[in-house]
């Protein structure tokens, strides 16, 4: 059924209509048959439309994993592209069920906005890019520089804090869209281009001569990016958190979309629990027992998703770095399914 009109009419009637009480998010989602997922309006590798017009990316895969866990169908997602200004309102108002939009987990957002962060799907940090010809080796030499960055993110605030802390002068020029930021930096409007390190790599290719630029070693902030849900619905919170955890755990156990069928019926108790062959883990969070199988089969494990969208073989060529598993030198660590 089509919902475009329902509320137009309800809107006319305003208080007159008797509405059904607000159900739990999972029931809502099951009733409508898809997950409504808030994503960015375009961030290379995280969520961007491909040439067929489908949304793809690391953030999009979180939405798909949630849908795969609930419905066994990773395509049962509808995407709402949100600007940074409207993302929290959209989640608060129930317009989206989950927000997976390169959103930094901060205390204010977690505690004050009525939201909960369900985990971290990308550890980022703010970095700086400069021209090699400038002869700068450290961010501490940047006093007096003009910095280009994007608005509506925490990056502007981080720059202000960092320069203030180190007693340096600066000028910030902030744009709505990454394309404009990079164009301005490329033209020489700014001496420094600053955004999350992932963004620095992602947008390097926009520069006229990418080889003439370098990323400075300092990372000035912690930017754990992750999916967000509304406060007060623990079941839904669990589904989103464990869908993400399942992707990370799968990589740790070496389960991939290619080999998952061969892992079935194996002897490893951890893998058996993961595949739903033992235990009632799906039931605990209100989804089918083969929830994790569906996630890995249809979306892939975290490593696969990373390689596909942002990894070294993509034009973005982002190294795993801190986003490698904890066992491989990174900090990616998911609680066990047990």
């Amino acid at each position: 059924m089509n919902k475009l009109m329902t509320t137009a009419i309800a809107g006319v009637a305003f208080g007159l209509t008797a509405f059904t009480a607000n159900a739990a998010t999972l029931d809502d989602v099951k009733a409508k048959g898809f997950v409504q997922c808030g994503i960015s309006q375009g961030l290379p590798g995280f969520s961007n439309p491909d040439s067929d017009g489908n949304w793809v990316g690391l953030d999009v895969d979180v939405c798909r994993a949630v849908a795969a866990a609930i419905f066994g169908d990773s395509e049962a997602v509808k995407y709402t592209p949100l600007s940074s200004k409207e993302r929290f309102t959209a989640l608060q108002s129930g317009e989206v069920d989950v927000l997976s939009r390169n959103t930094t987990w901060t205390m204010t957002r977690d505690a004050n906005l009525g939201l909960n962060f369900a985990g971290v799907n990308y550890y980022d940090g703010q970095g700086f890019m400069v021209r090699k010809s400038l002869g700068v080796a450290s961010t501490l030499e940047l006093s007096g520089a003009a910095v280009c960055t994007q608005t509506g993110t925490t990056t502007e605030l981080n720059i202000a804090d960092y320069f203030l802390e180190n007693g340096m002068e600066y000028e910030v020029v902030a744009f709505e869209k990454a394309a404009e930021v990079v164009a301005a930096y490329d033209a020489g409007r700014c001496d420094v281009y600053s955004t999350d390190a992932s963004g620095l790599y992602a947008n390097r290719l926009r520069l006229t001569n990418p080889d003439e630029h370098m990323v400075l070693p300092e990372i000035i902030s912690k930017e754990p990016l992750g999916p967000v849900v509304r406060q007060g619905d623990d079941q839904w919170f669990n589904i989103v958190r464990w869908s993400l955890n399942a992707m990370i755990n799968a990589e740790e156990m070496g389960i991939t979309s290619a080999n998952i069928d061969s892992k079935m019926g194996g002897k490893n108790p951890g893998v058996q629990r993961f595949l739903g062959e033992t235990g009632t883990f799906g039931e605990m969070i209100g989804v089918p027992s083969d929830w994790a199988v569906n996630i890995v089969k249809q979306v892939g494990n975290y490593g696969e998703s990373f390689d596909k969208h942002v990894g070294p073989d993509t034009p973005l060529a982002i190294a795993r770095g801190v986003n490698a598993l904890w066992s491989k030198g990174g900090i990616l660590y998911a609680a066990p399914i047990r």
């Binding site: 375009g42 439309p49 164009a183 926009r206």
Partner: peptide, 20 residues
């Protein structure tokens, strides 16, 4: 305009004069 701006973010098609 919005669709053009979104496709500008496609990593396969990043080049300097893309936005222009």
């Amino acid at each position: 305009l919005g669709t053009v701006k979104a496709t500008i973010e496609n990593p396969e098609w990043i080049f300097p004069l893309q936005a222009m």
